[in-house]
Design a binder for these strands. Structure first.
Length: 415
RNA sequence: GGACAGGUGGCGGAGUGGUCGAUCGCGCCGGUCUCGAAAACCGGAGUACGUGCAAGCGUACCGUGGGUUCGAAUCCCACCCUGUCCGCCA
């Protein structure tokens, strides 16, 4: 959500920010609507004010037994204006709610992912003679079953079995333990279904409803734990967070993947349902930049400990998500696919979600919108893929990374 | 799912269709007193929007959304949430 006062004060700056996202100027329409709405509101408030005065006078006169018909008639005449619904306000709000966040000044310009900037790389892109992709390995081991999944649910689902199912669980536990034990995050078990307000507050609505699954009773399956975690203090004025509030959760995530038909159809890279460990920080405006770096480090550590090759990518203006001011993607190297693939995305939304959710804190006299950040720490399904492809052996078995073995009863190898 | 009882300002808790944005208590902030503190006393404190250079003024908000009325925290309807009991159930 955007600050209408800021737009009024400097429309050119706002349009310039939109231009960085390749969007046409929006302020002429916004300001026209805003002016019209304020005029309407002023007129309506004047009518209300008059009516309140009349009602008060009527009350007093009635008590004195005086005739009040003339006053009542006048009050009745104000009805049209008083009861007129403000159609402009919601329209303006929808307009503002549909515009993406303002990008950080440092975000590199560019139309699409080809303009993203690699900031850092850990490890080398591994070349393995005769490397297989994760689904080849998984199916050959008899631990990954796409046929069964499509039989019972449809495309873009998978069934994991045996030690591989356990390894998925181990990955989630390992990540959670790392973030809660070493990174200061508080583990949360959260609803996997949320209402409109939570989805709107985390900028999934109104623009992206087609990406979500909706329940028959009007709720939404969460596309990421970012939604419930960020919305935990929705609508509240919280104590000033001198230290950022850090939440983490391991949850299934549900995505309709509308619009990605035909993309990544093989394997479990892009599913309707996957496990993910999410990190969310709620903090003061002056802390969000440092928190963003910190959070990204937390995610990177997961990948390093799993023995994966990864790189940090600074998303360009054209690739940065709707709600984000600044985003780092972490890409992991998949030796089977011979490609870098996203396993984490860490974003600073600044006060964009805070405004939508109306989460604030008090500082002296002023009420300040919180800043919120979210990052995958990391996507479990994709981490599983990376582990399989990275740790695969020529015989089709997969070495289990040492950090996961305690979670797998000491097992050292799949197959 | 059924039957009750509720949802009021940070918390507790009043509230009659008409000077109610809302008595009061606690907590909070400022002050007086004190060497200092406590107690006591005095005073101040909600959020959002509009309007104005500003002081200020106005409007809305008593779970949410409708309705009745000149006027609704108060009456009516629907929904949501909480509590208790019953039924069902992982």
């Amino acid at each position: 959500m955007h600050d209408i006062r800021a737009i009024r004060a400097n429309p050119a700056a706002f349009d310039a920010a939109l231009a960085r996202r390749g969007m046409a100027p929006a302020t002429p329409a916004i300001l026209a609507l805003d002016t019209e709405r304020r005029a309407f509101q002023t007129r309506q408030q004047e009518a209300l004010s008059r009516r309140n005065a009349l009602a008060k006078e009527i009350g007093q006169k009635k008590r004195g037994g005086e005739d009040t018909t003339a006053l009542e008639d006048e009050a009745r005449e104000l009805r049209n204006l008083i009861e007129a619904t403000d159609e402009l306000g919601p329209k303006l709000e929808f307009m503002l709610a549909s515009l993406p966040n303002i990008l950080d000044a440092e975000v590199p310009d560019g139309a699409d992912e080809t303009a993203n900037v690699v900031l850092h790389q850990h490890g080398e892109p591994v070349r393995i003679e005769g490397a297989k992709e994760h689904y080849q390995l998984g199916e050959a081991l008899g631990l990954m079953d796409f046929e069964a999944a499509s039989r019972i649910a449809g495309a873009r689902f998978v069934v994991l079995k045996g030690a591989l199912a356990r390894m998925e669980r181990a990955l989630g536990q390992f990540m959670l333990d790392l973030h809660t034990g070493s990174h200061g995050y508080t583990e949360c078990a959260v609803p996997l279904m949320v209402n409109d307000a939570a989805a709107y507050g985390t900028d999934k609505l109104p623009k992206f409803s087609e990406d979500l699954f909706k329940t028959t009773d009007g709720r939404w399956l969460i596309p990421t734990a970012e939604v419930p975690l960020t919305a935990l203090n929705m609508g509240e004025i919280i104590p000033e967070p001198h230290e950022p509030l850090r939440y983490t959760a391991l949850t299934p995530c549900f995505r309709s993947e509308a619009g990605s038909a035909g993309r990544d159809t093989r394997g479990m890279l892009r599913q309707h349902q996957f496990q993910k460990v999410e990190m969310v920080s709620i903090c003061r405006p002056e802390d969000s930049e440092a928190e963003h770096e910190r959070m990204t480090h937390c995610a990177e550590r997961v990948l390093t400990e799993l023995g994966l090759s990864w790189r940090r990518v600074f998303l360009c203006s054209g690739d940065t998500g709707f709600g984000a001011a600044r985003t780092y993607d972490l890409e992991v190297w998949l030796p089977g696919q011979q490609a870098w693939r996203e396993v984490s995305s860490c974003s600073n939304t600044r006060d964009f979600q805070g405004r939508r959710m109306n989460t604030r804190f008090k500082r002296g006299k002023e009420t300040v919108f919180i800043h919120s950040l979210n990052g995958s720490g990391v996507a479990v399904g994709r981490a599983l893929i990376a582990v399989m492809e990275t740790w695969q052996q020529p015989d089709g078995s997969v070495i289990i990374p040492p950090v996961l073995r305690p979670y797998m009863g000491g097992l050292e190898k799949l197959g």
